[in-house]
Write a protein that binds this DNA or RNA. Sequence first.
DNA 1: CGACCGATCGTCT
DNA 2: GACGATCGGTCGA
Length: 205
Amino acid sequence: MSPREKKLDARFYNRKDVLRIARELLGKILVTQLDGIRCSGRIVETEAYAGVHDRACHAFGGRRTARSEDLYGAPGTAYIYICYGMHHLFNVITNEVNIPHAVLVRALEPIEGIDHMLERTGKMTADYTLTRGPGNLSRAMGISKLHSGSMLFSEEIFIGDDGLRYKPDQIVVTSRIGVESAREDAELPYRFIVKGNPYVSARKS
DNA sequence: CGACCGATCGTCT
DNA sequence: GACGATCGGTCGA
């Protein structure tokens, strides 16, 4: 691991306020070191999923199935599931064991391993589509459902802090994307983005 | 630029 | 058997 960033520890993830954690994850660095390939990118878009009372969360109403089991894991667990049959969506689990809070990481600004990201995605150029959107970033970083349940303290996948902080006026809060069926919870201000960052989804603001 | 649509398949009812 | 915490392409204004 490069000495540049310091891994977030269990204390960071083991907190009750998932909205605060989602906000604080902006600017942190997601790192994968898979098969000797190191890739990293700065997190610029997140969404909070607030457990059993959140209609958009897979754990709404206490639902607990084989798919969502990792959502109930220890703080710092990776929860990855397949969406629309082809996209692997990467979440980090927060709060205590059995409290199914999660933060979906939706976009990165690539830092290291861009050539490998291009190879994995089959793209020709490193434009803003490379790691924009949860499906795209997982493909670029080599993250798949196989990594669900693994802890983010390993060398394979983790989140680091290099000290960068966004000022409050650089962060915009909006409703979440793709959760229309969550009825009254669809409009909750649970999405956090870095203002003006080209890797953030273009929708809303 | 916005609206729409097909791809693709694991998961849940 | 229906439905996604998506994506990229197309079509029309």
